[in-house]
């Protein structure tokens, strides 16, 4: 082959030139359109039959604040129960033992297969099936006393959540390379220790976004517990509007609180993701 010739003519020097900014006419147009539509909706509400003074007055009313605290307490406890059950059921589901496997599959089938509101009503009305509950010879109590709205809501929401969370956890564990399990075995770990020390911490990274999603869903699903008299924020808002007939105003109050809570949860989820991303390239340095 001959030596490379000098650079060919006819290709102008482009160094020093900048790429022009695109005007993006359509983006400007569509953004303006959206602002107009929002303004129109806002104007309609402002002129509609809404007494905004009631909204601002009840936004920080004691009953409403108690309601949102109850909502959060229930959401956190039910999620804790859901994650606890979810991890156990996912481990059972992935076990080689056919009995454990079937029990786990049956649980998921039953609690995903019926509406949440129906499960809440069943727990709350458990006294109709078992008037007294307890351990024979040791302790017993009337079911109506034990099954308070709080306990019924916690069991209904938590056990239902566990069925969904178990599938999220199972997906997370399956996403961890089988070689990780073998490496854990090779240093003498048993199945459960390998799950706890090696598999679950890696699965967490994958499951946090869907778990965050589930939790946000659960925060709002606690509103269903209003049907069994659990005093969460929607239930308390309803009680107020039964008295003063300011239905829309109080629904807006409840809605604003849900929006606020969910807005706070999103950055919290980011922090958790960062925590469990240890050792992955994205946050390694």
């Amino acid at each position: 082959m001959k030596a490379a010739p000098a650079l060919a003519e006819g290709f102008p020097d482009l160094s020093g030139l900048h790429v022009a900014r695109e005007p993006h006419w359509f983006r400007w147009f569509s953004a303006a359109l959206i602002v107009l539509v929002l303004a129109a909706i806002g104007r309609a509400f402002a002129g509609g039959q809404i007494e905004w003074s009631y909204v601002s007055r009840f936004l920080t009313a004691k009953v409403i604040l108690e309601g949102i605290v109850n909502t959060m307490v229930m959401a956190v406890l039910a999620m804790a129960l859901g994650i606890f059950l979810g991890v156990i059921v996912a481990i059972m589901r992935l076990s080689p033992n056919p009995v454990l496997k079937s029990v786990a599959a049956g649980y998921t089938w039953l609690f995903r297969g019926t509406p949440l509101i129906l499960q809440l009503l069943l727990w709350f009305n458990l006294a109709l099936v078992f008037p007294t509950i307890g351990i024979p010879g040791l302790w017993s109590a009337r079911a109506v006393d034990v099954m308070t709205p709080f306990l019924a809501a916690l069991l209904g929401l938590g056990i239902n959540q566990g069925a969904y969370t178990s599938e999220v956890m199972r997906a997370g564990m399956l996403s961890v390379d089988i070689g990780q399990y073998e490496a854990a075995q090779a240093i003498g770990m048993g199945r459960l220790r390998a799950l706890r020390r090696i598999i679950l911490p890696q699965a967490m990274r994958v499951v946090i976004p869907p778990i965050g999603n589930e939790f946000i869903g659960l925060v709002k699903a606690t509103s269903l517990a209003s049907v069994i008299q659990y005093p969460e924020v929607l239930h308390n808002a309803e009680n107020i509007y039964y008295a003063n007939s300011r239905v829309i105003e109080l629904l807006i109050v409840a809605g604003l609180w849900y929006l606020l809570v969910v807005s706070i949860l999103t950055p919290l989820q980011m922090l958790l993701e960062r925590r469990f991303a240890r050792g992955t390239l994205r946050f390694a340095r």
Partner: peptide, 13 residues
């Protein structure tokens, strides 16, 4: 026994 794998299988976390 100690085992060394083709794909290392170090614990990434």
């Amino acid at each position: 026994t100690g085992m060394v794998f083709q794909r290392f299988n170090l614990f990434p976390h």
